[in-house]
Design a binder for these strands. Sequence first.
DNA 1: GTATTATTGCGACAGAGTCTCAGTTGCCAT
DNA 2: ATGGCAACTGAGACTCTGTCGCAATAATAC
Lengths: 147, 147
Amino acid sequence: MGLRMTRERELIVAEVDSFDGHFEPDELLDRMRRKNIRVSRASIYRTLPLLVECGAIKEAVYKDRKTRYERLIGRDHHDHMVCTECGGVIEFVSDEIERLQEAVCKRHGFGIAGHTLEIRGVCRDCSEGKTGASSAGRGNTNSDARS
Amino acid sequence: MGLRMTRERELIVAEVDSFDGHFEPDELLDRMRRKNIRVSRASIYRTLPLLVECGAIKEAVYKDRKTRYERLIGRDHHDHMVCTECGGVIEFVSDEIERLQEAVCKRHGFGIAGHTLEIRGVCRDCSEGKTGASSAGRGNTNSDARS
DNA sequence: GTATTATTGCGACAGAGTCTCAGTTGCCAT
DNA sequence: ATGGCAACTGAGACTCTGTCGCAATAATAC
């Protein structure tokens, strides 16, 4: 019944730690392949949910029906603004919003395990017509100042 | 270049209107099949994004990589609490949270097009050990009082 | 009524993720 | 230290949601 720490899992965890932003399972696999670290796709797909369960990573930024993860350990909680033009992701935090969520849940007797707040729209660069941002910024994560 | 109002699209729109909560494309298809309304799967998959674009429905509650939609017309905006035990969905609204989101986006020069706030956790019934809720409530939508 | 061209339906396809199963290995008890 | 067993791995087949290409059809403009 207990989990085991295998060589493969160590390797996966180490690789996950090397990502700063978001990553997809197959992206992780490719990266390991390129480093000649051989772990099967199935093992990666089996291990990531375990890491979610123990709070090391979480699912984030749902788009085009791929599961995307991001590391939690060593990073602060934040939410996302996703630009529909360039695909860029701005991270932000609002302690007030967090507090309000807790209040609403309390009113409903709902025990919070986690949440995902994703705001879609157009980022400053794209709305100012800097079309260059459209290619340069694709998929980028702009780590951002707190609340 | 212009869109056409076809018989198939009318049928799809009519069926979408008959859903009160969330629905999945294939669920819509099954329902139509059972009523002997013959529309191809491809047409449904092609039509739903059009309805999103014209604001009649929106994508909602991403889970297990299926696209789920919900009707917008005739319904107020709301966010979701999803129970990880029974799969039930509680809808809620908080005008304050909405306001704060706008404020945060304004600070970043980000033009809001829409947002998704999904809180995961355990609903009152499940946390009180009413395991019956686990089967009875699966997938249900509890429409709920405002803020 | 005819021309134009968006739309349909079908079946093939694509891609993310899951499952099966035989072989391997971490871990606990002895 | 070693034997046993359940957890884990890898490979590939499989599932399922969603997309595409193409010939036939039908909505709209003229």
